[in-house]
Amino acid sequence: MFTISLVGQKGGTGKTTVALGLAVAASLAGMVTAVIDVDPQATATNWKDRREAENPAVVSAQASRLKQTLETARNGGAEFVVIDTAGRNDDSALNAARLSDLVLIPTRANVVEIETLRAVSDLLRIAGNPPALVVLNGIHPTSTKTAEEAHQMVRSVFGLECAPVHLCHRQAYADAPMTGQSPQELDPEGKAGSELDRLFRFVIEHVNKGTFEHV
């Protein structure tokens, strides 16, 4: 079972967007998928209420029950689990980081948001330095330099690595959740869906250390 958590100190950085995008990508790849929503705002759970498809399973859970919920997911045959945390630095993010194979930290590529990575970096240290990658989000589609400069800043200032796939600012990310879908489902040929699919494939490959064949 792959367990990925989405962590970050700020709200609105794209944690739930990435969580649901990866979960749907896993579902489309044929994996039994679960989203554990420990964010009290329950955005992912509300998305599931609007959704018609049954995969992924989504459950709103208390942070203090995360371990038991993960165990239930494992026993229930889940192959890919995404934990969506609240946009603050607390013990739910800490627990999620400790229990994950990979921590993803979505952030927008501006200095105000990148500065908050210092607190996330501290949180990861307290969690025992689990594998973690920053995912740049909201990049202008025609910009070539922004992502590259942000990669360098994140690496040099906070010692964190960025995923090689970033997400651009696209309307599909706002439209898809309205009907309980993800961009891949709204427009299977679209660029947003393609970004999420590439991110999913990278994540699996990263966790699997290059053994991607079974997906």
Partner: peptide, 18 residues
């Protein structure tokens, strides 16, 4: 289905929390 069963068991675990 497998996913429906998973959803049901997750909700059961979540419901037991309170």
């Amino acid at each position: 289905s497998k996913v429906s069963a998973l959803q049901a068991s997750l909700e059961k675990t979540s419901g037991r929390a309170t």
